[in-house]
Design a protein around this nucleic acid. Structure first.
Lengths: 196, 196
DNA sequence: GACACTGTAGCACGATCGTTCGTGCTATAC
DNA sequence: GTATAGCACGAACGATCGTGCTACAGTGTC
């Protein structure tokens, strides 16, 4: 491509902020260039030029969202001591992010995974890779905790990671379906019950 | 509109079978009249006449899917003795339905809930009602089990229902995302671990 | 054999989709 | 002061969306 100007990068960034917000509600496919352009009061073609195709826009939006999770969930969690503290941190920070309603339509990757899990393509592969790393992160934190003797040795770290992720994911869906924050409490209880 | 003759009902039924299959992959919004008509080798307008609007088609598709779950999951499960047997039955039959790949894109209601959880409207309200009844069913089976003394009295049946649902829902996503049936085993392990 | 009714098809509509193209504006480089 | 490159715009493309309207074939009733 071409070397970018500060202004161009700024515009691109503001597009991605709006895009990830819209996509969390309408989905990555329901995210439309026209709707996005209207939201930002800019022309469809001017917006389009930043990405070259809708698929590229989707991929850029995914990367933007991933970075947000790294900054707001993973880094704070991994600042805690390795082991059960970090494991708790990952869950706490994730639920806290949902509670902060950073994405108006709920967890960006929960929505993306649900939308693309049965549809082949680069977008789906990208989402799969991000989710893979997230599950691996939970699993390795669980493994550290076992290694530290903070969890029973008989526990399967992958199974534990799956169950933690399951509780958090479902809290995301049901919170938005019913507008009931009690589901965050349910998720926290499930996490507490599983990590003991 | 109002279908009367046997032939009309038959056509309508075959439309709904195809519609629920497509919707499980592409979503209820991604389900398109043109695509559906092509799949069934009939005209868009002829198909359209059965429902009158896309929203009515979506609602009819939801009702069709709900009936399928009643027949293939709920009724078999509730044929077992009330209490822990029925509770296990609900989970087993549900996972078995997913394993049978009845819906090519995964659990119909998981997809529908994920798609509409943040979008107001009649479709979302209908899905919310179906999911509400499903959660209530799990909860009341858990309550029966506690009443029978098959589960510890200290257990919160609503919390248990949530955790069971969470494990099964997540198995659905991850199975389709990675094509890995091990996630069904994870779900079964989680259910076994939670009901004890 | 005429009739009413239901089910399906054909055709056209306005809107919106992603995408392309040509054209200016603006800020930096020479 | 002029050349250049990045950025954004408006207009238009063909395709497809959901939705009407009209015509006609099939079936059952008198």
């Amino acid at each position: 491509m071409a070397t970018r100007t500060a202004r161009g990068l700024e515009t691109r960034q503001s597009i991605l902020v709006a895009a990830s917000a819209i996509a969390s509600v309408e989905g990555l496919e329901g995210l439309t260039l026209g709707r996005l352009a209207a939201e930002l009061s800019m022309s469809k073609s001017g917006l389009f030029a930043h990405f070259g195709s809708k698929e590229e826009l989707q991929l850029a939006t995914i990367e933007h969202a991933r970075q947000l999770y790294v900054d707001q969930v993973i880094l704070p969690a991994l600042a805690r001591p390795r082991g059960i503290a970090a494991l708790h941190g990952l869950c706490d920070e994730y639920v806290a992010l949902m509670e902060r309603r950073v994405f108006p339509g709920g967890c960006f990757f929960a929505g993306a995974m649900a939308e693309f899990d049965a549809r082949p393509g680069i977008v789906r592969d990208t989402i799969a890779s991000v989710q893979r790393r997230w599950l691996d992160l939970l699993e390795s934190a669980a493994r550290d905790a076992i290694h530290n003797g903070e969890l029973e040795g008989g526990i399967d770290p992958a199974q534990l990671g799956f169950e933690l992720e399951a509780a958090m994911l479902s809290a995301n869906w049901y919170f938005h379906l019913y507008g009931d924050t009690a589901f965050f409490t349910r998720a926290r209880s499930a996490v507490q019950g599983a990590i003991r």
